[in-house]
Structure formats: structure tokens, C-alpha cells
Simulated assay, not measured.
Amino acid sequence: MGRIPGSKKKRMWIREGDVVIANPWEVQDCKAEVIWKYTRPQVEWLERKGYIKY
């Protein structure tokens, strides 16, 4: 379960299957704060360069 900070909340929509960077909370390991969401071209570039296996 992730929380989108207020400054990004209105500009960012997250759907199942999206690739994101999340920072886990220190007090609750099951929750995190979403830092960044990758677009489809960015994910394809990361796959080609070998940074992620999707």
C-alpha cells in the first residue's frame, strides 16, 4: 500500500502493473510513500539497458 505525497497527488495516477519507486515507512513496513512513477517508454528503456527485468 502506497501513499502519494500532496504535491504529486493531483498529477499522478497509479494503476496495477505500473512501475514505481517507493520509500518504505520506518514505523510500518507494509506501507510506503510513492516517490516516482515511470512512463511506458521509460520502462522499456530500463528493460533494454538491463536495469529491471519486467
Rank of each mutant, 00 (worst) to 15 (best):
M1L: 07
G2C: 08
R3I: 04
R3S: 06
R3A: 00
I4S: 06
I4G: 11
I4V: 15
P5R: 02
G6T: 09
S7A: 14
K8G: 11
K8T: 11
K10F: 13
K10N: 14
R11F: 10
R11H: 13
R11A: 08
M12C: 08
M12Q: 01
W13P: 06
G17N: 12
D18V: 11
V19T: 03
V20M: 04
V20C: 07
V20N: 06
I21N: 09
A22M: 10
N23F: 05
N23I: 00
N23L: 01
P24C: 05
P24T: 03
E26N: 02
E26K: 04
V27H: 04
V27K: 00
V27C: 04
V27L: 02
Q28I: 05
Q28S: 07
D29S: 01
D29W: 02
C30M: 08
K31Q: 10
K31I: 04
A32M: 10
A32P: 12
E33C: 03
E33T: 02
I35V: 11
I35W: 01
W36V: 09
K37C: 12
Y38M: 15
T39R: 14
R40N: 11
P41T: 09
Q42W: 07
V43Q: 09
V43T: 14
E44K: 08
E44T: 11
W45Y: 13
W45H: 13
W45C: 14
L46C: 14
L46H: 09
E47C: 15
E47Q: 15
R48D: 13
R48L: 15
K49M: 15
G50A: 03
Y51T: 02
Y51I: 02
Y51C: 05
I52P: 02
I52H: 00
K53T: 03
K53Y: 03
K53V: 05
K53Q: 05
K53G: 03
Y54S: 06
Y54G: 07
Y54K: 06
